[in-house]
């Protein structure tokens, strides 16, 4: 028996929004410790890694580990039927070929359930090594989303240069070029608005804007985003999900010409 309950369906809706642009379907691995998802996008250039810890759920029970392959468009249709403040419970029997979503309104006067067929997905898991990154940038997630959206208008590739003074995002294309520089702030009383940089050595890497835009669909999950970079390894874009876990996106850098 698997059962996981969240008091607010809004959280699950946001999680789904954060992955469904990159993935058509995904396997949710459920165990005693929580729910995990690891999947590459169709072009194998980016990877989504989601962890929802069991202790972050309002109720969590997983007698036997199970993998639930879900079509994310179907899951999205179901979650649209929930109000943001509904309680959502995900249920499955051991060895089941369906999963059930139960939505309960706050006053319990409305209870709905939606059963969805599970899929057998043959997904390859990647071993992600622990890396000491040369640069770790923390900034407001809304600011990052804004920069990526603004710059993507002018080119397909963004160059991210990080030094101890700050981080610079640059794009060039047919129209011309654009640069956005963010200085490290010492805004201790407004930590949520600060830009902080931990740097071992400066890094310059290029990435496809299109993927960064997809990653910023996670913005509603967290006020902060963390970008971790080292030369010639994938960028990690991480959003913490308060008291529940995190979503990390890995993006392979563009090869130097």
């Amino acid at each position: 028996m698997f059962e996981a309950r969240l008091t607010s369906a809004a959280t699950l809706k946001k999680v789904l929004e954060a992955v469904k642009e990159l993935l058509n379907e995904a396997s949710f691995d459920c165990s005693d410790s929580g729910i995990q998802l690891q999947a590459m996008d169709n072009s194998h250039v980016s990877l989504v890694s989601l962890t929802l810890r069991s202790d972050g759920f309002d109720k969590y029970r997983c007698d036997r580990s199970l993998t639930m392959g879900m079509n994310l468009a179907s899951m999205s249709k179901i979650l649209k039927c929930a109000n943001n403040d509904d309680t959502v419970t995900i249920k499955a029997q051991d060895d089941a070929d369906t999963v059930t979503f139960v939505f309960e309104s706050k006053k319990q006067e409305k209870i709905s359930d939606y059963e969805m067929k599970l899929m057998n997905l043959d997904q390859e898991h990647l071993g992600i090594p622990e890396t000491d990154f040369s640069c770790v940038i923390r900034m407001p997630s809304v600011e990052f989303a804004r920069i990526v959206r603004d710059l993507a208008q002018f080119g397909e590739t963004v160059l991210i240069c990080c030094t101890k003074e700050g981080v610079k995002f640059s794009v060039s294309g047919d129209v011309g070029s654009a640069n956005v520089k963010l200085a490290q702030t010492n805004n201790f009383d407004k930590e949520e608005e600060s830009v902080s940089i931990e740097m071992q050595e400066p890094v310059s890497l290029s990435f496809a804007c299109q993927y960064l835009i997809s990653f910023t669909k996670a913005t509603p999950l967290s006020p902060r985003v963390q970008l971790s970079m080292s030369s010639n390894v994938p960028l990690v874009v991480e959003y913490e999900i308060a008291e529940l876990g995190y979503i990390r996106y890995y993006l392979a850098p563009k090869i130097e010409d």
Partner: peptide, 14 residues
Amino acid sequence: VGNQTTLMKFFTKA
């Protein structure tokens, strides 16, 4: 995706 490399180059299969 142009001269984009894939993640396989960096990560091993688990």
